[in-house]
Design a protein around this nucleic acid. Structure first.
Lengths: 87, 87
DNA sequence: CATATATTTAGATGAATATCTAAATGTATG
DNA sequence: CATACATTTAGATATTCATCTAAATATATG
C-alpha cells in the first residue's frame, strides 16, 4: 500500500470506473467484466492493481470472487488532499 | 483539464512533492528545482503536466516564472472521492 | 470423475512516460 | 547591445504499462 500505489491505481480510467461500480455493492469479477469491452485477463490485471493498492478487498463465495470497495483507503487519500488546504 | 489529466498528474511522486512544496507559497522554477536531484528540463516537464491538469497556475515576474497551487481543482478531485462515500 | 464455468497467470507487443543532453528562447543588467 | 541567468523545447533512450491470446488453476455440478 502507500500513496504511490493508490494514486497510480487511480490514474487509469478503467480502474476508476471499476471503483465506481463497486460504490453501491460488492460484485464478482464476471459482473465487473460485463461493463467493459475488454478481456477477462485485462480486467483481472486491473483488479489486482486495485487490490495491491488496498483500494478493494476480495471475498470468495463458491464459484465467485467478490470485489468490494475499501473506503478506509479512500479516506486516507482524501486526508492527503485535505492537508493541502490547511494553513 | 478533467479527471484523467488530474489523476495522471498526481500519480507521479515528483509531481506530488512539487504540489506539496507549493502548499505554503508560490515558487519560481529555480527554487522548485533546488529541491530535487533532477535536471531543469525534467522539472520543467513535470511542471507542464501539472499546469495542463490545472493543478497549478503560473505568473511571470520579470526573470522568474512563479508556480502556484490551484486549490479549486483540488476541491474537484476531493468531490470525486466524496461521491464514493455517499449513499 | 468429467465437463463447464470463473478467474488468474504467462508471455508478447505497442504505446506512454520519466529522464537525460543539447539547443533554443526569453529577460534583465552591466 | 552583449552577456548571464531562467526556463522551455527537441530529440533520444530505457522503463513501465495496458492490452491481447493462450494456457493454467480452481470450483461446482451432472
Amino acid at each position: 500500500m502507500g500513496f504511490q500505489e493508490s494514486f497510480k491505481a487511480l490514474s487509469d480510467p478503467t480502474r476508476r470506473e471499476i471503483i465506481h461500480l463497486l460504490k453501491k455493492e460488492k460484485l464478482p469479477v464476471g459482473e465487473i467484466l460485463a461493463h467493459f469491452d475488454m478481456t477477462g485477463a485485462t480486467i483481472s490485471h486491473h483488479l489486482s492493481i486495485l487490490k495491491e493498492a488496498g483500494l478493494v478487498t476480495t471475498e470468495k463465495k463458491g464459484k465467485y470472487i467478490y470485489y468490494e470497495l475499501n473506503l478506509s483507503v479512500v479516506e486516507e487519500i482524501m486526508a492527503w488532499f485535505s492537508d493541502l488546504k490547511e494553513v
